[in-house]
C-alpha cells in the first residue's frame, strides 16, 4: 500500500512537471529557443494567486484565473521585449537572454515581495481529511492530487486537440517545421509565437498554483528547480512533442518520488538525471521524439 501511495504522489508531482514541460516544449517547438524564464513565470503565477486569495480574500477560482491572466500577459510581454528583437540573433544570445530574464523575474519578486517564505493557502482542503480514503484509510488521496492529475490530463488533451484541429494550432505546427515556408503561406510568424508564449505562460500559472498547493512554501526561487525538472521532462519525452512532455513529466515525477522513498532523498535528483542520461544515450531524440525521415 505504501508503494501505491508513493506512486500516486509521484504521478501528482509528475503532473505538475508535465504542465510546465508542455509550455517548455511548445515554446521550443515553435520559437526554437529554451525559455529558461519559464520556471519563474510559475513563481509569479503562484504569488499572484497567493495575494489574491490570502491578502485580498478573493474566491480561490478567481485567484487562479487572475494568475493565469497575468502570466499570459507577462509571457507575451517577455517575448516582445526580450526575445523578439533577437529573432535573427544566434541561439546562444537568446539563451543567455532567457537566463537573464529568469534572474530578472526572481530579483523583481524579491524586491516586490521579499524573500520571506509565504505559506500558500490550501484552498482545496474540504472536509476533515482533505481527500478520499480508500482501503479502510490505508490509502489517502488528497483532493489537490486528484485536481492536479485531472488538470494535467485535461490540458494535454486540450492542447492535442488545439494543435491538431484548429487553424491557429496547425499554423503553430507549420511554424515549428519551417518558418519561411509558413510565411509564404501567409502565416504571421510573430503572432504565432506570441500565442505560443501566451499559452505556455498561462499553463505555467496553473502549474504554479498546483505546485504550491501541494508544497506550500512560496519564495522567489520557487519556480527555478521545477522549471529545470520540467525542462528535463520535456527533453526526456522528446522536446517539441506534446505527448512526450506529458509522458516525460509523469515519469520524472514518479522516478523522483520512488527514488526518494526507496533509495535516498539526497540522491533523488541525481538518480532522475542519471535516468535521463541513459534514456538519451539509447534514444537521443527522447522517448517520443521522432527524427523526420526526409525523402529527397
Amino acid at each position: 500500500m505504501n508503494f501505491l501511495n508513493f506512486l500516486i504522489s509521484g504521478v501528482s508531482l509528475g503532473s505538475v512537471y508535465a504542465i510546465i514541460a508542455l509550455g517548455y516544449t511548445m515554446v521550443y517547438g515553435i520559437a526554437k529557443m529554451l525559455n529558461f524564464a519559464h520556471g519563474d513565470v510559475i513563481m509569479v503565477g503562484a504569488y499572484v494567486c497567493f495575494f489574491a486569495i490570502s491578502r485580498y480574500s478573493l474566491p480561490p477560482l478567481l485567484g487562479v484565473l487572475l494568475a493565469v491572466l497575468l502570466c499570459t500577459v507577462l509571457g507575451i510581454v517577455i517575448e516582445k521585449l526580450a526575445y523578439k528583437p533577437l529573432r535573427a540573433a544566434p541561439s546562444l544570445a537568446v539563451l543567455i537572454t532567457a537566463i537573464g530574464v529568469s534572474y530578472f523575474l526572481q530579483n523583481a519578486a524579491q524586491l516586490l515581495w521579499t524573500s520571506n517564505p509565504k505559506v500558500f493557502p490550501s484552498f482545496l482542503d474540504f472536509g476533515e481529511t482533505g481527500g478520499i480514503e480508500l482501503f479502510g484509510g490505508q490509502l489517502r488521496v488528497s483532493y489537490i492530487t486528484i485536481v492536479t492529475i485531472a488538470a494535467c490530463v485535461v490540458i494535454m488533451l486540450a492542447l492535442t486537440a488545439f494543435t491538431g484541429n484548429t487553424k491557429m494550432g496547425k499554423a503553430m505546427r507549420a511554424c515549428s517545421e519551417d518558418k519561411g515556408a509558413a510565411q509564404l503561406m501567409g502565416i504571421n510568424v510573430n503572432t504565432t509565437i506570441s500565442v505560443t508564449f501566451a499559452i505556455g505562460s498561462g499553463l505555467a500559472a496553473i502549474a504554479g498554483v498546483l505546485l504550491c498547493s501541494a508544497y506550500p512554501t512560496l519564495v522567489p526561487t520557487t519556480g527555478s528547480m521545477p522549471g529545470i525538472k520540467a525542462f528535463t521532462a520535456a527533453v526526456f519525452g522528446g522536446i517539441g512533442s506534446i505527448p512526450g512532455a506529458f509522458l516525460g513529466g509523469l515519469l520524472l515525477g514518479v522516478i523522483e518520488i520512488l527514488a526518494k522513498a526507496y533509495i535516498s532523498t539526497q540522491l533523488s535528483d541525481a538518480i532522475v538525471f542519471a535516468v535521463l542520461i541513459v534514456v538519451l544515450l539509447i534514444k537521443p531524440t527522447g522517448l517520443l521524439g521522432k527524427p523526420v525521415n526526409e525523402k529527397v
Binding site: R173, A174, E177, D178, A181, L184, V292, E294
Partner: peptide, 10 residues
Amino acid sequence: PEGRRIFLRM
C-alpha cells in the same frame, strides 16, 4: 520555394 519545403510532419 526551392527544395519544396512542404510541412513534412503534417
